[in-house]
Simulated scan of single mutants.
Amino acid sequence: MTTPDPTLERWRLILGRAASQSLGADGEGEVVARDAALDWLYGRDEELRNRGIRRGGARQGGSEESTLTTVDWLDDIHRLFPKETIERLERDAVERYEITDIVTDPTVLERIKPNQTLLRAVLRTKHLMNPAVLELAKRIVEAVVRDLMEKLAHDVRRAFSGTRSRRRSLSKQRNNFDAKRTIRANLRHYRADEGRLYLEKAYFVSRVRRYVDQWQVILVVDQSGSMVDSVIHSAVTAACLWSLPGVKSHLVAFDTNVLDLTREVEDPVELLMKVQLGGGTDIARAVAYATTLVENPRRTIMAVISDFFEGGDPHRLVRLVRDLVEEGTYVLGLAALDESANPTYDRELAGRLVSVGAHVGAMTPGQLAEFVAEHVAR
């Protein structure tokens, strides 16, 4: 059997079985199987059908093979496609076509590999699950949170590990290498004919541990559906900050109601299982509650994580933020706290918060850890 042309195969997958005769790929078992898997998902796209675009006939009547179940489809894509494609297909299934049995069917949950797309789906659909299915779904939450914790813990340790001092050190570690001093001290060993600098002696700097006074970090996170990534990363960030000496972290989730989840901060899995996504948005009410947690305004960072589409009273929110800033609290308005930090938010309200002293932007969890470290060490 001849090896199929990769270019023709890509066009075959794009165009579907309607292109079989023209491209000559009909009859190739694996190619047909990949096409059937793609058609099972994208054949349901109403927008494409309205534009007169059809991938093929897998979802039409006639003497076709039996319709794939979700379990069969998952088995097929894991057999037929590379990892990156599998993740994209699973994400489209859950987020674009809302195939909820991917996270509500126990037979599917037992097979599927945890990832952040599925974690988001679990958080959105856990209210549909019976207790047995919820326990299986929790496996996804635990696996993804563990992975995120490991990544962020590294960033937090690095942010709080200390700053370089001017004192020399006998500890010859790559991170402590003093490049400028080493070059300056060895310039006499530079050989122009070779274009090389020979090092007779290398210099290293020591590090001093940051002194951390007691600070509060209060994360106030919008749990509306559009902020699901920020909810996940806020839970993980709060858990990592909780373990730091001298830092007291809080997590407050809100929609039109306010839920103080600080007691669950040490266990971000249980915390996320208690979050209820959706509902309205009352940022002012949440900030008013968070204000009651402030013990020493000049030793407090309050990060309000929201898209700032306020459903409550925006004038009250601006007044509250102004009062916090005037008392010495450092107020951060984060339109996103996730790995991409690429938000959509109400710029008009965000601008009003900036005008009263808040700092508005977007951060990754690692950047927030660095920000906290820089301020608590002053």
Rank of each mutant, 00 (worst) to 15 (best):
A132C: 06
L368S: 07
M1A: 12
Y97F: 15
G57F: 14
L128S: 10
F160N: 02
A239G: 02
G246A: 09
R352D: 06
S224D: 08
R209M: 05
E30S: 09
E142D: 15
T344D: 12
D282H: 10
S243M: 08
G361K: 12
S63H: 07
I305A: 02
G278D: 02
L13K: 08
A121I: 06
L261M: 09
V376N: 08
A179Q: 11
F204G: 07
A335I: 04
T291R: 15
W215I: 02
T256H: 10
L89W: 02
Y190L: 10
T104D: 13
S169Y: 03
P131G: 11
V71Q: 11
V103Q: 09
R181P: 00
L293N: 08
G279L: 10
L241C: 00
R146M: 04
T292L: 13
G56V: 15
D338C: 01
T85L: 00
V221Y: 01
T329H: 10
E295K: 15
Q173P: 00
V258Y: 01
P268T: 03
D101A: 12
T163M: 08
V212T: 07
R168F: 11
H233K: 11
R158N: 01
E28M: 15
E270Q: 12
L219R: 01
N257C: 06
R191W: 02
Y198A: 10
I140P: 03
D255L: 03
E270P: 01
I183H: 03
D178G: 01
F309A: 07
S63A: 11
A93L: 07
E374D: 13
P268V: 03
I102L: 15
A137K: 06
Y211H: 13
D260Y: 01
D213Q: 14
L261W: 02
T2E: 14
D307R: 03
Q223D: 07
D92W: 06
T104M: 11
A137P: 05
L118M: 14
G43F: 04
T85P: 00
A238D: 06
A362N: 06
R210I: 00
E194F: 05
R111I: 05
C240W: 00
E295P: 05
D5H: 11
S234C: 04
T7Y: 05
S340N: 08
G225E: 14
D260G: 00
R49T: 11
N50H: 11
R174K: 14
Q367H: 02
M227L: 10
T104V: 09
I218T: 02
R91L: 02
G24S: 11
E370A: 11
E46A: 13
Y42P: 00
F371R: 12
A132H: 09
G333E: 02
H233N: 15
A288I: 03
R17L: 08
Q173A: 13
D222Y: 01
E64S: 09
K113I: 04
R210E: 08
G29P: 14
A284E: 04
A336L: 04
H375G: 03
S243Q: 14
A286S: 00
M129F: 13
G366R: 00
K83Q: 06
V220T: 07
R167K: 12
R285N: 05
T7H: 07
V220I: 06
G57I: 14
V236C: 07
S355Y: 10
K274S: 12
P245R: 15
G62R: 10
V321F: 08
A235S: 12
S340Y: 10
A373S: 12
D213S: 13
A159F: 03
E327M: 13
